[in-house]
Each structure stands twice: as structure tokens, then as C-alpha cells.
């Protein structure tokens, strides 16, 4: 999932300081699972913002709506009637949701309430870790299911480097050396020989180096 975290409440308040009526839009997708921008978080933020603005003698009418997803046009279409008389829209989705709202509601001031952090998963309740670097060409079959692109601080393909000490990365002693993990797992699987294959330089044009990416499935496209 996409993992995001809320911005400081005062930062968000600053963005909508001159607005009298604001729509807070939650997203029932990834940000609900990472407890940053779901229905509950949206209600809490609206409530906190109403209280803050009342205390500042600058009352705010805050309304809320939580979309099934903000990254699909059909799910934000239901906001068409809700946004009519609001001065601003605060999106509690990832950066994708914010942009979808800004594109659809061209005359509205759309601001982000979250900082979109990474693609990852939870280790225990309340802790999320980055696991995928979105490189565009998965190599996990060569690395024992452990991604060196994002879990190695240098994203090296033939590791480990000299900064690997006792299984930890030199960047931070709390970071496991991904290549140590890869070596240990491949050894346990009896597949160390696969690590002897030298990996050629990665084609980063399939990642962000090739500019914004697009995925197309013509077989599922609906003709108008």
C-alpha cells in the first residue's frame, strides 16, 4: 500500500486560513489502512480544525466526505455536488488523490493534508516499512524475495558493500543490510550459486529516469 502521514495540523490550518467553508475528503484506500486519511482521521481532522478556528475567532464550516478511492474518476464524481459552495478542499489521500481532485475541480483550491511517504506494509500495528522502490522491473526472483533497490541504502545490485557491518547498514544501525539478508536467505534456500551471476547495470529508464510512467491495458479499455 501507499504509506502516508499527516502533516502538522498547524501547517494544514495555514493553507486554509482564509477559507470559510472547507471540504475534508478522506480516502478509503491505502491511507485508511495506514491510519492517515480514512473516515475516522478525516472526522478527527475536521473536528480539530473547527475547534482551532473557533478559538481564533475565525469560525470554519468543515464538512467531510470519504471516497472509496480518490485515484479513480468514478469515485470522486460523487463529490460534484458537495464541492459547489466550498472555498477549499483538503484531501487526506496520497499525492495521487490530491491531483485527481485538483484536476476535476479546476476552480477549487485543493490542498494536501498528508505527506506521502513510500510503498510498504506494516510490521506490527502502527509501524510501516518501505518495501518497494517502484523501479519498474522486478528482480525479487534473483534476490530471495528481498528488494535491494529500496532496502539497500545504495540500491546496489551486486552487494553487499563495504559499509555492511554485522548485518547492519552503515547509514543507520537500525537498518538491516539488505544484501546480508539476501545472502542469508539464498544460503538457507541452497541457491547461493544464483548470486554468482553478475547483474548487468539496471535499466533505470523503466523507473522514474524515463519520466512519468503510464500503464495501458487495451484489452480492458472500454470503447466510447
Amino acid at each position: 500500500m501507499i504509506v502516508a502521514q499527516q502533516k502538522p495540523i498547524n501547517d494544514i490550518a495555514q493553507m486554509i486560513n482564509d477559507c470559510k467553508k472547507v471540504l475534508f475528503v478522506g480516502c478509503a484506500g491505502c491511507v485508511t489502512v495506514c491510519l492517515a486519511g480514512g473516515e475516522k482521521e478525516t472526522e478527527v481532522m475536521a473536528s480539530a480544525m473547527r475547534i482551532k478556528r473557533t478559538l481564533e475567532n475565525n469560525p470554519l464550516e468543515a464538512i467531510t466526505y470519504t471516497c472509496t478511492r480518490q485515484c479513480d474518476p468514478e469515485y470522486i464524481a460523487s463529490l460534484d455536488n458537495v464541492v459547489k459552495d466550498v472555498d477549499a478542499i483538503v484531501s487526506l489521500a496520497c499525492g495521487v488523490g490530491v491531483q485527481y481532485l485538483a484536476e476535476r475541480f479546476k476552480d477549487k483550491w485543493v490542498v494536501p493534508a498528508l505527506d506521502t511517504k513510500f510503498i510498504g506494509g506494516s510490521t506490527v500495528h502502527g509501524v510501516w516499512e518501505e518495501k518497494c522502490g517502484l523501479c519498474g522491473e522486478c528482480i525479487l526472483h534473483r534476490t530471495g524475495g528481498i528488494c535491494p533497490i529500496i532496502r539497500c541504502s545504495k540500491s546496489i545490485l551486486n552487494g553487499p558493500c563495504g559499509g555492511s557491518q554485522y548485518g547492519k547498514c552503515e547509514v543507520n544501525k537500525d537498518i538491516d543490510c539488505a544484501w546480508q539478508l539476501i545472502y542469508d536467505r539464498m544460503k538457507a534456500l541452497g541457491k547461493l550459486d544464483k548470486l554468482m551471476e553478475i547483474q548487468p547495470p539496471k535499466d533505470w529508464s523503466k523507473s522514474r529516469d524515463g519520466g512519468p510512467r503510464k500503464a495501458i491495458r487495451e484489452d480492458v479499455m472500454i470503447d466510447e
Partner: peptide, 8 residues
């Protein structure tokens, strides 16, 4: 913490 931040 939220109450402190919003001034209540």
C-alpha cells in the same frame, strides 16, 4: 497533543 496544538 492535538488539543495543545489547536490551542484548547
Amino acid at each position: 497533543k492535538v488539543l495543545d496544538e489547536i490551542g484548547l
